[in-house]
Amino acid sequence: MTVTLTFLALLMAGFVAWLFSHSVNVRPWVAGSSETARRTQVPEWVTAPRMGLMVLLATVTSVFTLIISAYLMRMEMGADWHPLPDSALLWFNSALLVLASVALHGAWRAARQDAVERVRHLLIAGGGLSALFVVGQLLVWRQLAVEGYYLATNPANAFYYLLTSLHGLHLLGGLVAWAKVFRRLQRGGEPARLRSGIELCAVYWDFLLLVWVVVFALLLKT
């Protein structure tokens, strides 16, 4: 549970510090004071979708840190832990995901410059690479199954399948959002909303890349 508790401690520390800065020395019963009103509203760049995404990412991080906590605890507990072999394909998949993330960042930059064609190309690249990543992950599953590393043979395998499938599901969820953004682009949607959508996708992909890096490192190390 150390991993989860560390994550929560950091998160809570930030949250509590923020709350503290907005409540310290505030005398709530004083009416109509204009300064208090100004200070406590959120800054303008924190839009609802951005904040929504952040809250979602905190929740998803909680899911993954808990699984990682369970992973480390289970590894310690049983004497039956046999790590999986590394697969070259995994490195290739990781590269795909990095490229997808880079492409989406490119799309975001292009969107800010209103370069619609470039946005379209980079979006397609980002989505395509991500889909390839998912296919690549399925291939690794097949490869492992062929080599006899079934889900139930060993807890290391079980955790591997659990982590990769949850990561993959989150990526698929991201692709649904991506598809909505892409459709909006094709229909010539409002540029501001489009920008916001692409930005959210880019941030979400960064997050999934980060999760993948941590998961991959964990699988390599143990």
Binding site: S23, T36, R39, Q41, A48
Partner: peptide, 16 residues
Amino acid sequence: VVTVLQARTRGMTLMR
């Protein structure tokens, strides 16, 4: 969460 943090009306500070 987002509504509480984001959509409070004017003057509705956290401590109000």
